[in-house]
Write a protein that binds this DNA or RNA. Structure first.
Lengths: 160, 160
DNA sequence: TAATAACCCAGTAAAATAGTAGGTTATTAC
DNA sequence: GTAATAACCTACTATTTTACTGGGTTATTA
């Protein structure tokens, strides 16, 4: 599970579709203008989002993209995975010659962390992000950290 | 908050230090051999880990690196942030001319998600990863997903 | 039939990741 | 002291990924 600005672009664009839901299709041109992302780059991202059945496009005037599913049936993980390939194949797994144990150990651990991360991101639905849009302007977060998010509620517990 | 193989390397190396704790300093050479990461690249990563006060190095024969803090006082987030710069500065935030609201909205939302992610990763301590090393060989995860991780326990709740 | 906007493809520019190569300095063991 | 070790440092290169550019075509609407 990788997480870069590419996935961020995709999530941002999907939120754009969410807030404009019901007002007809959203053109990539408008997202491009709003978010400052190049049109052609957006086309590439939406090609993947479309192939993942997250959006549906319609051509011609008045056309654009709409969400293919309900905002509460789309989670952040599938958006990110749709555009961010998940490669990260380690030599170890490929060769299967890790008899000293050390190598597999750490790889296995990271995999576990990846699964947890995926679990976390898949638990956050697009609808949640969208509905909280009103109270999430820059700076509204202040110095708060870690827990008690007004956006997602009690998603996890502090360990110590 | 970015998450790439670079951060994975760092976490992997830190777990290596954890399991060898008490057995004296660990050389980068041994980590290089174990994990298949170039020595000089590791040196660059450890330079950052050292500046973040996560490890301390000792020179000469018998030297190497040890953890600067207890395994339960080091979390995954600080390891990742130590090597993965957190730039991701958006035009919007820099210019502060986002009066249409649309732009700030999505940016603020992503920031919120970043904070959540940071909270999640900072709740996982190095010690947890280390102690579970015995039961986390590749394939032990099976098809399990999302919740009920034997590694981290109940870290978060599914939303719906 | 003209405008629109998705859809497609090939290439380039920029950035980040990963590695290479050469050092120096401090420490230990002989 | 001297040799080996291993951190520590710097600059450069290769590779990969990210992001953008520029050209199309196809379907749809007015």
């Amino acid at each position: 599970m990788r997480l870069t600005t590419k996935g961020r672009y995709a999530v941002t664009a999907m939120v754009d579709l969410s807030v404009n839901q019901g007002r007809g299709p959203v053109t990539l041109k408008s997202i491009s203008d709003n978010q400052g992302i190049s049109l052609s780059y957006l086309e590439q991202l939406f090609s993947k989002l479309r192939k993942s059945s997250l959006v549906t496009g319609s051509r011609g005037p008045g056309g654009g993209y709409v969400l293919a599913k309900n905002v509460d049936e789309i989670n952040i993980a599938e958006i990110v995975l749709s555009v961010d390939e998940v490669l990260d194949i380690t030599e170890c797994e490929g060769k299967q010659d890790c008899k000293d144990g050390e190598r597999c150990l750490t790889h296995g651990l990271w995999d576990e962390l990846s699964v947890q991360l995926y679990g976390f991101l898949s638990s956050v639905k697009l609808g949640q992000l969208m509905r909280q849009s009103g109270i999430n302007h820059p700076g509204s977060l202040g110095n708060r950290q870690f827990v008690d998010s007004p956006l997602l509620g009690k998603q996890y517990n502090e360990v110590n």
